[in-house]
Nucleic acid binder design. Structure first.
Lengths: 153, 153
DNA sequence: CAGGATCCCTTTCGATACTG
DNA sequence: CAGTATCGAAAGGGATCCTG
């Protein structure tokens, strides 16, 4: 699969290789389910992944995984998100059915955001990605140092 | 965890709930490993996820999962990526050690891109995300229709 | 408290043209 | 073939002010 590229010892285990094989179908799903591949932007996988890939959605979902949060509490939990982006991201997550919004008509009003079942289910595959990212970070940082050193020379 | 929010029947299975519990640690990793959370942008998980989340990297990795590709072949495989973005994305993936680049000094020159072992490993968690996205797409589309209908009313 | 509205800067990205 | 360089359009996103 990777031929004789340098620095590629191929040490993946059998289970991983199994998964890699299944990508022939996944690749098809990414380039469009239909024959002509006319509308790549509207491909199911790409538009769902686009939402998870934006700057804030994932962080918000993880913050909500702990417990429901009110607006301000959520802003503090995420850390460096502006009110503008928090509102906007929450609207999109609510629209996609991943987050529920419940208003308590107190004075002053308070609004509680929580994960829906769909939102919780989304976090399951996300957990795998986060684990990988945490584990691979050292290798990636090392690779960057190597690359940048060569570029500077 | 989700309290009594409407439309949230909580039907996740035990394995999924188990994973959700583990997010207390993951949430900490996202908001920064250090106490003050001074540098959220430099958090390991966030910067690795940022790379997977950009518009093209994931598509390129999936395309390469089939086999090594030359530049033009890769552009055709992804579909609607410009040369500019393909070059730029490949440089970043190479820098991060996920993709290897090998030049064959023929005339005209040809360049072959392939996954590294690190790149192949990255696709394992990605596969889980793609599977989820494919499965959840119907529910998400339905949620959007519902949301947009209410907004229009 | 929970936002909506506006302004404006920055980054992203595609199209085009050019090079070894 | 495999890029690089430049330009302009568009989207992303922060800061600030205003409201119920």
């Amino acid at each position: 699969m990777t031929r004789e590229h340098p620095g590629n010892p191929v040490i993946l285990d059998a289970a991983a290789r199994q998964i890699l094989q299944s990508f022939s179908e996944k690749a098809a799903a990414l380039t469009g389910p239909d024959t002509a591949a006319a509308d790549l932007a509207n491909c199911p996988v790409r538009d769902v992944l686009g939402r998870m890939g934006d700057k804030w959605s994932l962080l918000i979902l993880v913050a909500l995984s702990q417990q429901p949060h009110r607006f301000s509490a959520l802003q503090r939990a995420v850390g460096d998100i502006s009110k503008r982006m928090l509102t906007q991201s929450l609207r999109m997550l609510e629209r996609d059915g991943l987050v529920s919004r419940q208003v308590f008509p107190t004075k002053p009003p308070s609004v509680e955001y929580a994960l829906t079942t769909l939102g919780e289910a989304a976090l399951v595959p996300v957990a795998g990605l986060i684990d990988w990212a945490a584990g691979a970070h050292d290798a990636i940082r090392a690779a960057r140092l190597r690359y940048d050193a060569e570029a500077g020379a």
